[in-house]
Amino acid sequence: MFSPWISRPFFLLFAIPVFSCTTIGFHEETIRNSMAFGEEVSFRVCVIKEKGVDEEDVTTLFQAWNEELRYYHLKAEPKVLAEMERPGFYGSDILDYLLSYPMLDSCDRLLYLKGRTWGDVFFEIVTLGIFAGVGLKLEVQGAVEGKTNTKGYIKAKYISTIQLLFTSPKSTLIHEGYHLLGCGHQLWMKECYERIRDVKSLLNDPKRDPNFFPVITTSGKKILKRPI
């Protein structure tokens, strides 16, 4: 806990490098607790995982995410669709793959869980050297596509190097989970709280597909029907 005498600008100077890698913004409990998020609602997250990511990993990750979602009376229910080889080395390859992957009727969101290969280990070592040399962190732990905010991936396996100085698979899922609910990046969480509240209000929209949990994208577009 930070001492109360620390001013907000001084606090931000030292906190920004950490928060930008681990969460979507700083929580504002007073504001969050004053907002009404309605009754508890579940949404279905279909999972594609790589070899080495087992059922226990999925359970542990979703337990952490659901602890965060309790603030908003939400619950993410995982459903493993398949285990597969990675469609490409880079995160952009995974996102391209997901964009062309059809969203099944049993899915509200699509999440790819990336494992850890020897190629990843080598890349981690290289990026660690770059970070140590020039202070530039090149590794990306996860991402969500911005067209519908319904599909994304995270690194579900990393246990060493520079990664654990900043984040973990659990915090990465929480971070990308906010994007899957339509939140962008902000310094303080008020705007994100409002976005989640507004997303839940869409459950009563007569234009919504009743078999789909909606979202409002980071650009403000309402997604009321399951994307292709």
Rank of each mutant, 00 (worst) to 15 (best):
S42L: 13
S42A: 15
V47L: 07
K49F: 04
E50C: 02
V53Y: 12
V53C: 12
E55D: 13
E56F: 06
D57Q: 06
V58H: 03
V58L: 02
T59W: 00
F62K: 02
Q63T: 07
W65R: 05
N66C: 05
N66M: 05
E68F: 11
Y71H: 07
H73C: 11
L74C: 08
P78F: 00
P78E: 02
K79P: 02
K79F: 11
V80M: 03
L81E: 03
A82W: 10
M84C: 13
Y90P: 07
G91V: 07
D93W: 09
D93V: 00
L95M: 10
Y97N: 00
L99Y: 15
L99H: 13
L99E: 13
P102E: 11
P102Y: 00
L104G: 09
S106N: 08
S106T: 09
C107K: 08
D108G: 11
R109W: 06
R109P: 11
L110C: 06
L111V: 03
Y112H: 13
Y112R: 06
G115T: 04
G115Q: 12
G115W: 06
R116D: 09
T117H: 02
W118V: 11
W118K: 15
W118D: 14
D120V: 04
D120S: 06
V121A: 15
F123K: 14
F123M: 15
E124M: 14
V126L: 15
I130R: 14
F131L: 12
A132F: 13
G133F: 04
G135K: 11
L138F: 06
E139I: 13
Q141M: 09
Q141F: 11
V144G: 09
E145Y: 01
G146C: 09
K151P: 03
K151I: 01
K151M: 08
G152R: 00
G152S: 03
Y153N: 01
A156M: 04
K157G: 04
T161L: 12
L164F: 14
L164R: 15
L165W: 15
F166D: 09
T167C: 07
T167Y: 00
T167L: 00
S168H: 00
K170I: 01
T172C: 04
L173H: 04
I174L: 00
E176K: 07
G177E: 00
